[in-house]
Amino acid sequence: MTDIATYNFAYLDEQTKRMIRRAILKGIAIPGYQVPFASREMPMPYGWGTGGVQVTGSTLGRDDVWKVMARGAGDPTTAVPIRPFSRKVANAAVPPDTPSATIIQTRHRIPEHPLAAGQVLVFQVPIPEPLRFLEPRETETRKMHALEEYGLMHVKLYEDIARHGRIATTYAYPVKVEGRYVMDPSPTPKFDNPKMHRSPALQLFGAGREKRIYALPPFTDVVSLDFEDHPFEVQTFDQPCALCGAENVYLDEVILDDHGGHMFVCSDTDHCEKRRADPASPLWEGRAGGAGAGDQAATPATPIPALRADPPHEGEGKEAQ
């Protein structure tokens, strides 16, 4: 502790950490169950990751490497203020790449790089209650969780199919955990739901404003809800990432100009940059497609300089600081 002597390590005082750790432990003991906790005021507004920061702050040790990501990238608005904060209060090494991080705090995405045992993924959750917009009474939703009355969750999916002909929910797609609790996987795209299933990493969910913590211990069954005749499916993209050529990854649309120009690029910028730096790496074999064949591995580099020269996208994919 040098210049951060005025703050306790990781900002929270030890009693608060203790309280939050107890909530986390309870959450791990009952996968998918929302544990109430005494959420603290954080030096950032609600909706900017206060729940995630509290969970991370209570989990963080001095040797940990804290990676912050928002929409898969390291530099969107919500991740930017957390990064200097984490550096200041915890001296955390940010932003590292996915494999070397021990704690990954995220909003919206699970990294494309498979997580390993020992890693902790912390989600910033805005609305932890999957039944919220169907049943406004909190007393009632708690009872429904307790009695495992989840018919209502399918009412939402029914409505989707009735209106759109398919399940149109694309994010915060409800899942059933270990055959018991229905859980909101936070605003991650449903593309990432299968990654939660039996993940070797510990997944923690913190909702600061709603004062709830829930958790998925490693190797927990996470099943997305669906109908027999409308099975769960993830988003697919008909073209690979315009920068690195990866297939079977989640892509963001980037607007290039005012004339309808756009391209689809990896939403996980760390993954994308590594692929571009080393397209031939065996790391990409059999996973995240695309880069398997030799010519394919070579092509991604070609369109990039042209796109990179486009002024509005100078900073795209680069770190803000």
Binding site: Y158, E159, F227, E228
Partner: peptide, 24 residues
Amino acid sequence: TVSAGANVGERLMAVGDRHYGNIR
């Protein structure tokens, strides 16, 4: 706030019916 069809189907889904076509 949910359609008439979903209102009628809610009880079916609550007792475990998971086939959209049948529910509808």
